[in-house]
């Protein structure tokens, strides 16, 4: 099946709670990747990630759309924007940290399954610089960039989540790319040298 999440959602709605674990794992990478770069720290990101899933669990019956990841991103967008506006932490499970400090995401093994080894090394070196450059983008541009890159969401969906026109979403992406290309000029040259 092209969309295994649809089966898991149907199963979960029928009461098979274990199917939720498949959903969380399946969408972990894009969702967490988005959240961690939209929040101040990995501890904040873990809070928001957990809160997104708690809200999804509580409102799963209202989900009647085609793209589950887009729905999750919308929840995450609302939480992140709310957080930016109020500068207040999201409150939930305060007694249970999502991960221990010994297993912070920065310390873990990169997911570099598909690229050639020399390319992996170059990418790994460039990674922190990309992260820093992305962090400097204005919130709206950063959000469009990450929804596109991490979530692989179409601009139609991104525009819907941000409640703007598709042209605005495209313009935000273009501004973001122009700034990143400028900031990462020398890194592009490094990567081009080993282009496969």
């Amino acid at each position: 099946m092209d969309h295994p999440e649809r089966k898991w959602i149907a199963e979960y709605r029928k009461g098979k709670v274990e199917s939720l674990a498949h959903l969380v794992e399946h969408f972990r990478r894009p969702l967490y990747g988005f959240i961690v770069r939209m929040t101040e720290s990995s501890a904040d990101a873990e809070d928001v990630f957990q809160e997104v899933w708690l809200r999804a669990i509580r409102h799963i019956d209202s989900y009647h759309e085609k793209n589950f990841l887009s729905w999750l991103f919308r929840i995450a967008h609302n939480l992140v924007i709310d957080r930016v506006r109020r500068q207040k932490p999201v409150v939930h499970f305060p007694q249970t940290p999502f991960t221990t400090t010994a297993t912070r995401w920065e310390d873990r093994i990169p997911d570099t399954t598909s690229a050639a080894p020399d390319r992996q090394i170059a990418m790994r070196d460039v990674g922190p610089r990309i992260k820093a450059a992305v962090a400097k983008l204005p919130v709206e541009q950063r959000e469009v960039f990450l929804m596109r890159m991490e979530g692989d969401l179409p601009f139609k969906e991104i525009a819907r989540i941000q409640k703007v026109s598709i042209n605005t979403a495209l313009a935000r992406m273009q501004y973001a790319l122009n700034k990143l290309r400028q900031d990462l000029k020398s890194d592009y040259a490094d990567l081009s040298g080993i282009r496969t």
């Binding site: 873990e46 708690l54 297993t103 995401w105």
Partner: peptide
């Protein structure tokens, strides 16, 4: 495309077992 590839290769954490139990 290079930027997309590099962004998607960023390491991400596994879901913590305890947090997963809480969600379940």
């Amino acid at each position: 495309r290079q930027l997309a590839e590099a962004t998607r290769m960023e390491p991400q954490p596994a879901v913590d077992a305890f947090a997963m139990r809480m969600l379940l």
